[in-house]
């Protein structure tokens, strides 16, 4: 998902977004078990699935909001917060962990002022801890978008992030 180009609706008005979602709902109307498809296409339209969109879909499909939100929270490819401009992923696999990965996490958290799993308030960065990135020889490693930053030290974090 993260490789995707920006959602096609950037710049669309709110009512246009809901019109588009309506079309999606109508396309699948009457199809039991198509909620996942509807949510998928709605996420393509909005980039994520905020509560307003969930409520809209629930009402249109005559489902309870808790059902819709249950499905969204079950699948990791759905997101309920807007996608940040840049995504930071840090590995805490064994190699990175023993070589000080945790210190890097702390440094990033300090620099951004948010905890792992959160987005910065300006939505510039998302910050997630991930599984092994397959670069153990270069540990500790973290990625910003497609760039791999290797053998990082806590003091280098500030400079690296400043580049984005």
């Amino acid at each position: 998902m993260s490789e995707k180009s920006p959602p096609e609706t950037y710049g669309l008005s709110e009512s246009a977004v809901f019109d588009k979602i309506s079309e999606v709902v109508e396309k699948y109307r009457g199809c039991d078990g198509c909620l996942i498809q509807v949510l998928h296409e709605a996420q393509d339209i909005c980039g994520y699935l905020p509560p307003e969109v969930q409520k809209f879909i629930a009402k249109k499909l005559d489902l309870s909001l808790s059902t819709v939100s249950g499905v969204i929270s079950f699948y990791s490819f759905f997101s309920t917060s807007p996608k940040a401009k840049h995504s930071i992923k840090i590995c805490l696999g064994t190699a990175c962990y023993v070589r000080g990965g945790e210190k890097i996490v702390e440094a990033i958290e300090k620099e951004l002022g948010v905890k792992a799993g959160e987005n910065t308030p300006d939505n510039k960065f998302s910050f997630q801890i991930t599984r092994c990135l397959g670069a153990c020889g270069l540990a500790p490693v973290f990625m910003v978008d497609d760039d791999v930053h290797q053998r990082v030290t806590p003091s280098a974090v500030k400079d690296i992030l400043a580049r984005y």
Partner: peptide, 26 residues
């Protein structure tokens, strides 16, 4: 809540060990 009362407040949210029975969005 869903089938008898048809109010639909409680449902499973999240999954695995993080599963909770809760209203939408917890």
């Amino acid at each position: 809540c869903n089938n008898i009362q048809k109010v639909g407040i409680l449902n499973a949210q999240n999954r695995g060990f993080r599963t909770i029975i809760a209203p939408a969005g917890g």
